[in-house]
Design a protein around this nucleic acid. Structure first.
Lengths: 100, 100
DNA sequence: ACTGATGTTCGAGTGTTCTCGAACGATTCA
DNA sequence: TGAATCGTTCGAGAACACTCGAACATCAGT
């Protein structure tokens, strides 16, 4: 959570594509997108939490997901509005491709 | 050129996104897409040819570009038809984002 | 305070990627 | 055949990414 999340105009295509180019991470994003928002441990990926935490960090730093604290949990959501504003159609095209 | 290029149904989202997540490589693809097809040395990137060759190889192996021999040159083109067939809208969304 | 749950951070190990010069192969043209 | 052009391949070095256990911090509830 110490990692800073980029503002809308700091989003870069390279970092976004890099974040989403990892199979584990696109699965995380798909999981979150499917339900709107979700704590880290409910993405359904069987992996040590330190590894998962790493992938969440990459997604966060690329600006793909946002994280807010709720009690003892971190609730994640996809930054659809920011992504669509900065790169219209990109997120949808990628998520659609990931569904196949 | 020894590297095999994936067939249309072997294209994977992760490899495509990974290939396009490098600033040098998306620049190469933009350059090729801008003129249709192009030899390796006309992408306008100032870099040793061994480095450039590496990036072309990554793009080729991800299925983003195709390469054909013409005399002493290798002519590259973007595999738009294959990419659109496999992941509709993806390439356009990425190239559009790259233009900004 | 203590305990349990949720995640982060740290450090180490392993593997992959990027970069570059040098050597090579294929082709063209004289 | 000789020389030039184009691009690949090889090998080495540096940088980076992924994975994991262990330790830590924070919060909630008892």
């Amino acid at each position: 959570m110490r990692a800073k999340q980029p503002s809308r105009d700091q989003l870069t295509l390279s970092e976004i594509l890099n974040a989403l180019s990892d199979p584990v991470r696109i699965e995380i994003v798909q999981s979150i997108a499917g339900v709107g928002e979700q704590p880290c441990n409910q993405c359904g990926i069987d992996m040590p939490k330190s590894s998962l935490s790493h992938h969440f960090k990459v997604l966060r730093e690329a600006g793909v997901i946002a994280t807010r604290v709720e009690g003892t949990r971190l609730i994640n959501s996809v930054r659809s509005a920011d992504l669509n504003a900065r790169f219209p159609g990109l997120l949808n095209a990628i998520l659609k491709a990931a569904r196949q």
